[in-house]
Design a protein around this nucleic acid. Structure first.
Lengths: 348, 348
DNA sequence: GTGAAAGCGCTAACAT
DNA sequence: ATGTTAGCGCTTTCAC
């Protein structure tokens, strides 16, 4: 345990420099009204004493902490890890620290308490609310909240939010499979996936809509439920389907992570991707470029989502954004890769 | 912007309950010396006013924040994401919030400042120091620090640390390949990988040692440098090697994430894993169970690393751990999967 | 068992 | 342009 000496306070600096604390504060906070000479003396004193302003005291006084909270289920979902990474970097570049709070099922705390606590120690909260469905009232917190949600299309939302276009993206993915001649397309990731919520419903809706537009029937045997959106479930569900002899020539997995397991199951059954079964995922996580074959997927525009959400939140915090809650929808994009397009068939 | 009313303070509660703030504080902090009757009255007042103790004020007074910091390069590396996830959960279960600070090359802040700031707003810091090599002095911070490092074998470390057994794990991985009859084993991930540092050196050392023990020569043509430990580099490096016609029948990739790219490159060249080339990675990230084929890898004992580090750090914080710095080494384990073992050949 | 009051280190209103 | 001081909301020493 080093650094034993009591850290220098503002008073120490003032005394050392022969000025008042007021002046030290002015210098530390780059206030204009300080003579250059005085400023210099104070800076010297600061350097001499190794003074650093106590941020907790500043927080108490100012009532703000320069910290944001990010609430999400688990970082083990690569999409969330990459989302968090983007946010961490973006927030850091704007001078904010980020507290990440994992609130999945293993969490025994009261969700409302969690938010109340976070509200007290941060200036604003970003939250992926899908897994909290209704267990928390985000409207009565003392700090602004921006939700990162699915695009439900509803209006008059209780909090600001940035939505990805789940249904639109799913439609793109499915239409792409249909256009390349696939007609027996499995959808992987329906409820009872504990944490699916609206996201799963919307991606299913996009899948259905694409079929409707193409005039192709959907078989309930190819609507596959998963208990969680991870590779093991993708693997299990796909294996069972193939074992059952259900014909499948394409798969739309509701996320990339599951798609990994799907591809694994397909090759374990001696079938080829994409020749026998084409696979498309959702999320465009980093891995997807380097599966074998690389995964065609829907990019939800993660970067833009983070930027938009941060803009909204900081706008609320500094008061430049006022008035009714806003909803921003970020468009999804199809990223074509080898898992859905054969080399001989790059017609897309 | 809801919740307009000024939050109730301890004084409000005291007044409402007809007691002094001292008593309210006693009740809030579960101090013994309060009459049951009084306690009840205070609790009622708290409920009636919706009082919540102001954590910032408490922090200032107590000089502690119940928050830890985790400093690492990027969450885009799945190993770090999973490490962070483990820590977040473990810390949450012990009543600590976690601030994650990404400090990679894109960071323009002074590393020393970053730590000084974090030290001010947290009770302790966990850091993966490999990417900070020497740019920071962790010994003179006002809070305890525990480093999550490679096992260099050195003693008299300046800070507590928990090390994974890089060299031992790499030896296991390589020995496994050699024992299954591979003799032309590429090592993927040598410097100049910007962020490699000791980790890469140690994993290389294990690779070399296994060869020495087996009496098999190492060809420098199969020591492959990477610019970063991600799939695209694994892909590039492996492709170039195969294109150059360098004979390879096994690969030890210094992490799983690169191994994804390696496998991709191998199949893109029309070769099979493991029949033509066996592949082993390092980290045992979640994905590795569901690549095609599943990836044999070295599990560094991530969970145990996190638990040990948290124990150390909290021990220093609450003073139950004192004295000289400690080093804990967590043993690595080989996890056998399909990328190194053919079905016909499960001799391991 | 409870009350009064000091003070954590800072910011900013009020002085001059 | 700078000094003096109140007070952010809490914990805790000191009284009783």
């Amino acid at each position: 345990m080093p650094g034993q000496r009591r850290p220098a306070t503002m008073r120490d600096v003032a005394q050392f420099a022969g000025v008042s604390v007021r002046t030290v504060s002015n210098v530390v906070n780059d206030q204009p009204y300080v003579r250059d000479e005085t400023r210099r003396a104070v800076k010297d004193a600061i350097a001499a004493l190794g003074y650093r302003p106590n941020l907790i005291a500043r927080n108490l006084r100012r009532g703000s902490t320069n910290t944001l909270a990010l609430v999400l289920p688990r970082l083990t979902q690569p999409y969330f890890a990459e989302l968090a990474d983007d946010l961490l970097t973006a927030a850091r570049d704007r001078g904010y620290a980020v507290l990440i709070d994992p609130t999945d099922e293993s969490d025994t705390r009261s969700v409302q308490d969690v938010f109340a606590q976070l509200a007290m120690i941060t200036d604003g909260i970003l939250v992926d609310p899908t897994h909290l469905a209704g267990r928390v009232d985000l409207t009565s917190l003392p700090v602004p909240v921006v939700a990162l949600t699915s695009h439900s299309g509803r209006h008059g939302e209780p909090v600001d939010r940035v939505a990805m276009d789940d249904a639109g993206g799913a439609r793109l993915a499915t239409a792409h499979l249909l256009e390349s001649g696939r007609t027996q397309i499995a959808a992987v990731g329906l409820p009872p996936a504990a944490v699916t919520g609206p996201t799963g419903r919307l991606r299913l809706a996009g899948y259905l809509e694409a079929h409707r537009e193409a005039g192709i029937d959907v078989s309930p045997r190819r609507l596959l439920a998963a208990n969680g959106w991870d590779p093991s479930e993708g693997y299990r569900v796909m294996s069972e389907t193939l074992d059952a002899g259900i014909p499948v020539d394409g798969v739309f997995a509701f996320n990339d992570y599951m798609a990994m397991g799907v591809i694994h199951a397909i090759s374990a059954h001696g079938l080829r991707v994409p020749e026998d079964i084409a696979v498309v995922g959702f999320d465009d996580i980093g891995f997807s470029q380097h599966t074998s074959p690389p995964l065609t997927t829907v990019s939800p525009g993660r970067r833009r989502i983070v930027e938009a959400a941060l803009d909204m939140l900081l706008g609320r915090i500094d008061g430049t954004r006022t008035g009714a809650t806003e909803v921003a929808v970020v468009e999804a994009e199809l990223v074509l890769r080898g898992s859905s397009v054969t080399k001989a068939d790059p017609e897309a």
